[in-house]
Structure formats: structure tokens, C-alpha cells
Design a binder for these strands. Structure first.
Lengths: 142, 142
DNA sequence: CGCGATTAAATCGTGCACGATTAATTAGAG
DNA sequence: CTCTAATTAATCGTGCACGATTTAATCGCG
């Protein structure tokens, strides 16, 4: 309730989010990926079935104005393909290329490295994650 | 430990941070402020004593390359002043103008509005804030 | 069938956010 | 004192991230 940044939950999220991206950076630099690109690939790695731009956007809560340029960069890197759907030509279907699937194994060590940097147990991480996700839901509804 | 975005603590922070900024947006739009600008002003409102660019950066964990343009915008809006320090001409001292101090009262309702949107009690908010801040510390050290 | 409304992606403009570099000033070791 | 090392802002280039708008395709109601 105080006005100091250090006391505000919004700043905690803001600041911890940046710290998280910095923790990822050295790992992702080796793969030539940015953190949002890694998130998009994670979405594809865990459900690589006719993902549309909108579908990815719903999952990651991102707009097409953010995703379109990002996906074009991933396409330029040869990691994904972007093709208009036959059934509905408004939609663009995003699929992993062979290289995009190979990146999954190249990045296999990343989650463990990050988990170590948190200095928390898996249980603690999961509990905090659920709490933060609940807060997110409340904010989205309000 | 799974690879799905929904299961990752990093994504929870990332996503909740965005949701938080969207919760602030309608409130800050009325004041003509962006969320990072509001954070900088909060830092000044709670300790308006010869804050340097570096000092604000340490407090908010932001680089001068982020702060310099942001502070120039706040200066253009008439909310802060930027003056080279006499004692050390490398430093730029940021101070609130009268208008910048007046903004504090104009924004007085914001924290309560946000607290309501979280759907959490103050105790819950504070506990979550501390947990997230602890995670941030671990990440910064690692 | 036809046409207004909806939906999907892309485009545009603004503002972070960072790493790397630069320019200017100060501190400090010899 | 001097000159090298450090510190401080600012600058530059890249990549998000969003709201607002645009374009194109599909839906649905009569």
C-alpha cells in the first residue's frame, strides 16, 4: 500500500521478470535465441500441431503485432515455417522445421540451469508459480 | 521442469507482469503516464533527495540507456528537472517539479485500485511480494 | 444468395529494455 | 602531480510489446 517501488507487488513482478530474462540470456545467447523466441518455441515443442498465430497468442497472451515480426525472425532463422491455412485463408499455421525440432534437444539443459539459479526447490518453485498464475488470472478478469 | 510455457515459473512472472501493466493502463492513461514512468515517479515521490540517474537505476534495476530517454520525456512533460551536479559533473540530478509533486496526489487512488484488481488480501499480497523479491535476489546473485 | 458483422493477421507508431560503445569527468597509485 | 583506471550519462542498434488501424477472408442472418 505504500508508494515505494520496493514495497509494491507490481514492481516485484516487473523486476523479477527482468532478472529472469537476464538469467536466461547467457544460455540463450549460445542458441542464438531471445527469451520471447524461446517461449514461442517452447509452446511449439510441447504441442506442435497446427498452431496458428492466434493460438500461440492465446497461450502466451501476446498480440499478433508482437508475434508476427517475431515469427518472421524465427522463419528467417529456419526454425519454423509460416503457411496460410487451406481451410481458412485468414489463418497462418506455424510449424517447426527439422532445425526447429533439433533446437529442442540443444536447449534441453536450459530448464535445469534456470532451476538451479532460482535457489529454490522444485516444490517451492511450483507453489510460487501457481500463486503468480492465480494473481495473473485475477488481473485478467478485473 | 516441463517445457510447456504454462508450467514454467519464468512464464508466470513474464505473463503476470504484462497483466499487471494492463491493469495499470486505464488508470495511468488518465494521468498521461506509462507504467515505467509511474515507477520512476514513485521512486522520486518516496525519496525526493538528490536522486541521480544511477541512484534511480540501482533502485529500479534499470540501465542508463533505459532511463535517460524516459527521464527526458518526463522532463518534457514538466514533471522532473535534470541538472548536472556541481560537485560531480558526471552525475545528473533528477528532482521533481511542482507539477511532478502534484502528480503524486493525482495518482493517490492508484495503489488501492490495483490492490482491488488483484483479488487478494493485503497480507497475501505482501507475502507473495516477498517471495517474488527473494526469487529476484537469488537470480541476481547466480 | 447477398451483404453486414466478425475474425485473422499484418502494419504502423510509440515507448521500453538491454548490451555495447563512447565521451567526459573524477579518483587514485606511484 | 600525472596519467591510468574508474565511474557516469548518453548514444546506438536490435528486439519486444502494445493499442489502433488496415486488409482480407469467412460467417451468418434474412
Amino acid at each position: 500500500m505504500t508508494l515505494a517501488p520496493e514495497d509494491m507487488i507490481c514492481f516485484a513482478l516487473y523486476s523479477a521478470g527482468h532478472a529472469m530474462q537476464k538469467a536466461y540470456r547467457p544460455l540463450l545467447d549460445e542458441l542464438g535465441l531471445t527469451y520471447p523466441q524461446y517461449l514461442v518455441l517452447s509452446a511449439l515443442w510441447t504441442k506442435d500441431a497446427d498452431q496458428t498465430v492466434n493460438g500461440i497468442g492465446r497461450r502466451l497472451q501476446l498480440e499478433s503485432s508482437t508475434l508476427t515480426p517475431l515469427l518472421k525472425r524465427l522463419e528467417l532463422m529456419g526454425l519454423v515455417s509460416r503457411t496460410r491455412s487451406d481451410k481458412d485463408e485468414r489463418q497462418v499455421v506455424i510449424a517447426l522445421t527439422a532445425e526447429g525440432r533439433a533446437m529442442k534437444t540443444r536447449a534441453a539443459h536450459v530448464p535445469r540451469c534456470i532451476a538451479e539459479k532460482t535457489g529454490m526447490t522444485l516444490d517451492e518453485i511450483e507453489r510460487l508459480r501457481d500463486d503468480v498464475m492465480r494473481l495473473r488470472s485475477s488481473l485478467r478478469e478485473a
